[in-house]
């Protein structure tokens, strides 16, 4: 017995070490980026266009570009994803089609991001002749985040108790009225969480926008959705690997802005979920 207690101690120590091996580097990464990036952040950095071949000036067009892309992606993916989730949770029966849809969603979630880039290039840029544009990039990102939105929304819808649906139907409400007035309002926090997570993912991805929208160096704001745009993650890639002699401060600053943007969205999602769990009435 004494011996097995000691084995347990050692085993738990190793498990703890494994956890530290993940947590500490993550903490370090965040701390390093904040520490070295913060000095670069000022009003001019955030609101100016890049100058001197991206070796000076700010990152405003990249921020704006990312905003456009994220907004476009969500405008496309939220309605489709939400309706797909409604289909899965409220309408579909446990049959072959249902399984096929679930399998398709799993696969959409697993397709490598660079393959989304290829797909966007082939379908939107070339086949549909949208060219390398915000439209093409948004649609590509939109399809990429679809599984995130569908999965989160579906979970949220399914967590609404069936008894609510029965009550509503028993009062003579139609199926759609029941979904619209009872199921959806009670699933909003979960749907919101999924949407924000999708936003965060779309903001941070680089590979899908490489060939569909991203401009290497475009020191102005895009004019329309058919225009190319700079984007934060691609800009970070460019100044880190493609442009020599960029001040380290600018690189860290760009990384910091991107990191803060993405982590902020995730934190908001986590907080919404946490609050909702505490408040849940049933």
């Amino acid at each position: 017995m004494h011996n097995s207690q000691r084995t347990q101690k050692i085993a738990f120590l190793f498990l703890f070490l494994a956890t530290l091996l993940i947590v500490v580097p993550v903490g370090l990464i965040v701390v390093i980026i904040i520490q070295k990036g913060l000095p670069a952040i000022n009003w001019q950095f955030l609101t100016d266009i890049p100058r001197q071949g991206m070796r000076a000036g700010g990152i405003f067009p990249a921020i704006v570009g990312t905003m456009y892309l994220v907004a476009g992606a969500i405008v496309f993916a939220l309605p489709i994803g939400l309706l797909a989730a409604i289909y899965l949770s409220e309408y579909s029966k446990d049959n072959f089609l249902n399984r096929l849809i679930k399998l398709a969603i799993v696969n959409l979630a697993g397709v490598p991001s660079v393959v989304y880039g290829l797909f966007g290039l082939a379908l939107f840029v070339i086949f549909l002749k949208f060219g390398a544009s915000i439209l093409s990039g948004s649609l590509t990102l939109g399809i990429m985040i679809l599984p995130i939105i569908i999965t989160a929304s579906r979970e949220a819808l399914e967590s609404v108790p069936d008894s609510f649906r029965e009550v509503s139907l028993s009062l003579g409400a139609s199926k759609w009225q029941t979904i619209r007035h009872i199921v959806l309002p009670n699933a909003v926090p979960g749907i919101l969480t999924g949407t924000i997570l999708g936003l965060g993912r779309a903001a941070g991805e680089t590979a899908p926008i490489l060939f569909t929208v991203a401009a290497f160096y475009l020191p102005r704001l895009p004019h329309s959705i058919f225009d190319q745009a700079m984007a934060l993650p691609y800009h970070l890639y460019v100044i880190s690997t493609q442009v020599p002699n960029v001040d380290e401060k600018i690189r860290y600053g760009t990384a910091l802005v991107l990191l803060v943007l993405v982590l902020f969205m995730n934190l908001v999602a986590i907080i919404i979920r946490y609050k909702f769990r505490k408040k849940k009435k049933w």
Binding site: V26, I29, I32, I33, S113, L197, G200, R201, A203, G204, E205, T206, P233, Y234, L236, Y237, S240, R251, A255, L258, L259, V262, L263, M265, N266
Partner: peptide
């Protein structure tokens, strides 16, 4: 959630 380009940079 950390974007891969940020991890690559780091």
């Amino acid at each position: 959630a950390i974007p891969s380009v940020v991890l690559g940079f780091i």
